[in-house]
């Protein structure tokens, strides 16, 4: 049975620890460093909760190391404590959530069997769509073309979505083009812009202020509010960027509107 003492313990196939996030959420954390192994565990728990949400659960949010599970404490008590009218004194909805999650962890596999989905994102690099490409190239003593080739040749793993709707935190940027953020953030970065910040790369799904180095833009919408799921990407996907010409960008962008 899990506890909230903050220590890693063995649950079925792997170690995890439980943390509180206020009085209506529990976090299950699988490790301390970002990597495919921890990600696989995060993904397995997320997929299980997607298919088998427990009564009283509201939603779950996967991130690099952990899954946050939000619940409605009163509904959780009603469903799992066996009381018709739960008493507030001595009730422990958080403890119930930990117990339910402990049982779920025991059912997960040592490693996930699911195949990652590959999503190709077309990008027009440089020019007015990627105004910081020359700066990124100069920072590393590369040509613009070399930066594009390096950026577009890697497979990027979507570790999590956050920051903005449809914004994917991608792992896998080459150290050769990792570039510090800009000194002064821009107030409005157009939706679809592809950027680099430190060892991260990503695509802005909606207009947002930000300090990223902007190297290109995709005509592909990443946030699709009328669709379900409402985003192009989801955690666990593999992203590949494909360079396109300005002409192709223009035709696809017009076509999308």
């Amino acid at each position: 049975m899990g506890s909230l003492n903050g220590n890693y313990e063995q649950y079925g196939a792997f170690e995890a620890k439980f943390l509180t996030l206020g009085d209506a959420a529990i976090v299950v954390q699988f490790g301390e460093t970002i990597g495919p192994r921890t990600h696989d565990r995060v993904r397995q728990l997320a997929e299980y909760l997607e298919r088998h949400p427990f009564a009283g659960m509201i939603e779950y949010v996967p991130s690099f190391l952990s899954v946050a599970v939000y619940y409605e404490p009163y509904a959780l008590l009603l469903a799992h404590a066996g009381d018709e009218e739960p008493s507030a004194k001595n009730a422990d909805p958080g403890g119930i959530a930990v117990r339910l999650l402990t049982d779920i962890l025991a059912k997960l596999q040592a490693s996930s069997q699911t195949q990652a989905r590959i999503v190709e994102i077309p990008v027009c690099y440089g020019g007015e769509l990627g105004p910081d490409l020359p700066e990124v190239a100069a920072h590393h003593g590369l040509t613009e073309q070399e930066v594009i080739e390096i950026h577009a040749s890697a497979d990027y793993l979507v570790y999590m979505l956050g920051f903005a709707p449809g914004f994917a935190y991608l792992g896998g940027l080459s150290e050769r083009i990792a570039t510090p953020r800009r000194q002064t953030p821009r107030l409005a970065i157009p939706a679809g812009t592809v950027g680099i910040a430190g060892d991260q790369t990503g695509v802005y799904p909606i207009v947002t202020p930000g300090g990223w180095q902007l190297i290109g833009k995709t005509p592909e919408p990443l946030f699709l509010p009328a669709a379900m799921p409402p985003t192009l990407l989801k955690a666990g996907d593999i992203v590949r960027f494909r360079p396109i010409t300005r002409a192709e960008f223009d035709s696809r962008e017009v076509g999308a509107r």
Binding site: I58, P62, L161, P165, K234
Partner: peptide, 10 residues
Amino acid sequence: RYGVQKFGVI
């Protein structure tokens, strides 16, 4: 709006 935080929707 619940159930879509995992997509980054607040």
